[in-house]
Amino acid sequence: MAISRDDVLHVAKLARLALTEDEVARLGEQLGAILEAVGKVSELELDDVPPTSHPLDLVNVWGEDEPRPSLPADDALANAPERDGDFFRVPPAAAVETP
């Protein structure tokens, strides 16, 4: 299954990736190969098979609503590129592109 150049650019944009022309061509080929491999599945008769949402045969894994200690603010902020008091400081939100 081929993937169009526009699809590659669209996906790259959603993932915030700036691609060179070479990369667009190369990734287009690779993504096409992946889609083709996955597309094999559609050759099977699967009308009666429920979709698999998870490889494990488990349901209802949950935890009780009991608080556990949180991180001290300094630890939480240890990897922050910038902080403002105990806030994570980030570029103005309007400058962040939204999908």
């Binding site: 806030f87 400081r89 980030v90 570029p91 103005p92 309007a94």
Partner: peptide, 12 residues
């Protein structure tokens, strides 16, 4: 307001 903000602070 978002418009004109110099930066944003996030509280998780």
């Amino acid at each position: 307001r978002i418009g004109g903000a110099a930066h944003s602070n996030v509280d998780f």
